[in-house]
């Protein structure tokens, strides 16, 4: 298919501390535009490790990673930063908002960095994303004044600001109660269904995984399904 957004070819990853361990073993898969994919597996099977590689933050691996048809190997730190900025949105288990800034500014930062739009346009777009997630009234608050669920929604808005090709999440609901988890899940679902947003979400939550389009199951550094 020509719509492949992300492709992993034979990705292997070793950790050397304290002894050489192969954490990822020959990972091969691809994600098409509009896919809503869940990655599941036992704790310690290498899900997070894989996600860090796919997100270009970890460059110490074997095999090939293509994002938007482009090979990531051999790119400079600056180029990778640019790709993360432009094409990848992140949502982590912990919200990682910058407490020095307002909610709106937090959402705007990656947009300002991209520099594609003027500052006011970025602000408008950020407001739009907050509205889409139903938290437009929080815009002027400081990031540390929010609840966990609200923070996670702000993090999603931030991930969306540059209209990324793919949103990656590492247990984005892992730190939330049931109600908030559901809200976040519904947001992902809506993003996938209504806006055709491509999503790759690592999760422990079987219920969450079952409701996605596709599940990648891992065990001991391999994809088993």
């Amino acid at each position: 298919m020509s719509d492949i957004i992300l492709e992993a070819r034979g990705i292997c990853k070793y950790f050397y501390d304290p002894v050489k361990v192969k954490v990822l073993n020959e990972i091969n898969f691809s994600i098409n535009k509009g896919d809503f994919v869940a990655v599941t597996g036992k704790s310690g099977c290498g899900k997070s490790t894989l996600l860090y590689i796919l997100s270009t933050m970890d460059t110490d691996y074997e095999g090939e990673l293509l994002i938007d048809g482009e090979l990531m190997k051999g790119k400079k730190e600056k180029q990778l930063a640019r790709i993360r900025n432009e094409k990848i949105g992140f949502v982590f288990q912990f919200h990682y908002l910058l407490n020095e800034f307002s909610v709106l500014k937090n959402v705007m930062l990656p947009g300002l960095k991209l520099g594609k739009y003027s500052d006011t346009e970025v602000a408008d777009r950020a407001m739009e994303k907050l509205k889409m997630l139903g938290i437009e009234n929080l815009g002027m608050k400081k990031a540390n004044q929010l609840s966990g669920g609200e923070k996670q929604r702000v993090a999603i808005a931030r991930a969306l600001i540059n209209d990324p090709l793919i949103i990656m999440g590492d247990e984005p609901t892992g730190n939330l109660d049931k109600k908030n988890s559901e809200i976040v899940f519904d947001i992902f679902k809506e993003l996938a269904e209504r806006y055709k947003q491509t999503l790759l979400i690592v999760t422990h939550d079987q219920g969450f995984a079952a409701n996605t389009h596709r599940i990648i199951e891992m065990e001991d550094g391999k994809i088993i399904k």
Binding site: Y96, L97, L98, L109, K113, R158
Partner: peptide
């Protein structure tokens, strides 16, 4: 550290 990590994750380079 957290802020630096998130800045980098969201596309700020080491130089920035």
């Amino acid at each position: 550290m957290d802020s630096i990590a998130i800045l980098k994750a969201t596309g700020f380079s080491g130089t920035d």
